[in-house]
Nucleic acid binder design. Sequence first.
DNA 1: TATGAATGAGCATTCATTCAT
DNA 2: TATGAATGAATGCTCATTCAT
Lengths: 212, 212, 212, 212
Amino acid sequence: MTLVDVQRAAVDLFSGRGFEATGIRELGAAVGLNSATLYHYAGGKQELLAELMRICLDELLACGRAASASSTVPLEQLAALLASHIGISALNPRTAVVTDQEMRALTPERRTVLTGVRDEYEALFTAVLARGAKAGTFRMADAGVTRLALLEMCNGVAHWYRPGGRLGVEDVQRRFVEMGARLVGADGPEPWTGGLVEAQMLDIEPRVTVSA
Amino acid sequence: MTLVDVQRAAVDLFSGRGFEATGIRELGAAVGLNSATLYHYAGGKQELLAELMRICLDELLACGRAASASSTVPLEQLAALLASHIGISALNPRTAVVTDQEMRALTPERRTVLTGVRDEYEALFTAVLARGAKAGTFRMADAGVTRLALLEMCNGVAHWYRPGGRLGVEDVQRRFVEMGARLVGADGPEPWTGGLVEAQMLDIEPRVTVSA
Amino acid sequence: MTLVDVQRAAVDLFSGRGFEATGIRELGAAVGLNSATLYHYAGGKQELLAELMRICLDELLACGRAASASSTVPLEQLAALLASHIGISALNPRTAVVTDQEMRALTPERRTVLTGVRDEYEALFTAVLARGAKAGTFRMADAGVTRLALLEMCNGVAHWYRPGGRLGVEDVQRRFVEMGARLVGADGPEPWTGGLVEAQMLDIEPRVTVSA
Amino acid sequence: MTLVDVQRAAVDLFSGRGFEATGIRELGAAVGLNSATLYHYAGGKQELLAELMRICLDELLACGRAASASSTVPLEQLAALLASHIGISALNPRTAVVTDQEMRALTPERRTVLTGVRDEYEALFTAVLARGAKAGTFRMADAGVTRLALLEMCNGVAHWYRPGGRLGVEDVQRRFVEMGARLVGADGPEPWTGGLVEAQMLDIEPRVTVSA
DNA sequence: TATGAATGAGCATTCATTCAT
DNA sequence: TATGAATGAATGCTCATTCAT
């Protein structure tokens, strides 16, 4: 219970000021604990960060795999992948930002591990794009560049989306699925029929479970 | 002359470790100067950062305005904007990354100023999208979301592109122009005919001026 | 029973790293107890040290008094004192080292008490040397310096002797008795006939009771 | 100049409270410097200690070698070695104590280096004892034990001698030379004719250069 | 222009100790 | 008897910055 509280506060502060600019005392204060007590729960500043990121990347990977497995039609797979990514990012934008930006703050060993997970995740996109291209469904000048553009576009959601704003999570999902389809040059019917994502993670904001 | 050397070293270090994690002594060492001497050239760590970002944002804004003014056809304007942004980012990926990520490290006053410049720049995209939508050239479900997606996709280039790799700057420009056109739902002929961008900025890598 | 276990572990760690460099958690770990539990047994780090030293000094004093009382011939008394000191030190080198070196770590009150015991012990040597000098048995240029040299030479045994090495405890005793006799300028027959010392104290090493 | 001041203060504090119990702030205060400034001069607490010890051990070794080389008669060599050791210890008792007791506080690499110097120094004693035994001048039951007793007796001087007390350095030297001769079982005329030792080291006490 | 010296404030972390359970 | 949780104080050390030279 309390470890999660610490992690939530850490996400809040790290995403706002950056990991390096956040002091362990600030963190303690934010969660009502003496800084020494944090070591009881979280075992050091960087370990806290690494665990945070691991949670986020594990969630992305697990949901991504489920999304990939939810269909054999490339466009549907892509739609599910995008919806998953957008859903997680939009529900946990702070966690996503920290995970995306603070990899450099990790020690080499930890970075290697987490980079590995991230690469494994991104490989899901590579695979879907390749299968869509092979099937002729996707028409892309360069699958590599498209994948990068797609991922950056999606990662960006965490930079501007905040729950409770003009758009609901599902709205954003729907629009990104559409834009993703355009980006890969896929024609045809709306491939995404909603559903998905119940990603409870570490963002402090009140968050709502979104279903179809 | 030497101020630029300091700025180049700063871009290199800030982009690699992050601003907060970079020490003023490291910076001095990187440029062969005592840390105290840096204060003569750059006047403090944060002033150095702010000036860096100003240079980058000014360049983006100036080139963006020129791009917007280079045509009255929305799709051509968009293409020029994208080519400009991609060109600057690809030629100066480290500078672009720092400018994008370290806004939070600035004091409120400086942040306000530079955020203003960035907003002004982004307004160029808003305007073009609005005009394209009004003209019926662009078909977007939500112009706001599309603009955000577009910008994040473009900003992302600085995360993965490095001069001297598989793709030349112009290749990336061409592909992003195409993807941008798809994203806004524009049909029609290839709108970009090359040219543009001679953005000498602060990245240390040997960089080549690219013309069409 | 368990208090002794704690003391034994403390002797082991204090003698290896020094008192100040040894943490109470290390100590707990070494004995399989939570650090908080140590306070039930030993009542704090320094109290533990003080008790340790008291045990050692009490043993030295008691054996020293017995040795002094075992004869009225100065050379025999000296031999008995030396054998006692060497025996205790050699059987409990770690305890002896801690007792010798960590007096400075004590609070003034505790230090005063234990220094008093040590002084009382050393006075036994002063007395024997004085009586031997008066009797003409010992020929020393300076009884004070001789006493100090004698004591340091003996204390040193704990620095290098370890049970189970090349020499048995009794070998070392015999040689130090001989060297002591030389040091005080005493001629004559071998004054020490063995026997003595059954000092069970706190050293962890398997230790053997030594008799003549 | 100032580095030496820092080293002197360090010797004073380390010898009084022990290395581990001495804070870097105390040290700064003792020498009138902010703790951060110490790093300018001494580069960290342990580096300061190691340098201290190196100075002392180098002095011992150099003087010890000179003493060994000052004669070919074993008893005279031994006398010179003892006088050198006593002289250095008595003029710099605090430095000698720190050097003797704080080896354990060093990192393994540093400890290895300095232990090597100490071993080299002690080998001078081993060599002299062996030559004296071979020549029949020295009659010892066990040269190894004798060497250890001799060294500990000499090291002990730093524990109790303070310049300005009842005995002058030369008095102590003379008495230890005599006791050393007894310890090794050497007969004959007084082997030491004074002279020697002008060891300026790090002890803070006003110290006097001692000549014959 | 350039630097060595200096510093106060801050860093993450560890400390011995207490206490409710 | 035993412990996890908690903490204030302290640890060694690094920070950006200033300033006399």
